[in-house]
Amino acid sequence: MKAIDMRHIYGNKKYRGRWVAMKSHQDLEIVAYDHTLKGVLGKSAKKGIPHPAVLEIPDKILPIIGGYRIVE
């Protein structure tokens, strides 16, 4: 099975630091992007996609080593 190729989304500089909305989990065409989730959902709804699949693209794409931990 091939990995789902998201490089066109993560690699596009205009999406860095923004929420992006894709048509669905299966159709990864970008329909909107914005600084906030509320904003991107609003833009997507105006384009006739009220329930897009959303993702926040980080400013920099860096490898993850370990996760978060709860501290006192």
């Binding site: 099975m1 091939k2 990995a3 789902i4 190729d5 998201m6 490089r7 993560y10 690699g11 669905s24 989990h25 989730l37 959902l41 329930h51 897009p52 699949a53 959303v54 993702l55 794409i61 490898p63 993850i64």
Partner: peptide, 27 residues
Amino acid sequence: SYQRITSQISRPILPIILRSNTKFVAY
């Protein structure tokens, strides 16, 4: 499927739906 993030990085990321009583977000 895994998601290919960059030419060097692929991650096990699943499509999920998060719901409250009246709304949902595909994430």
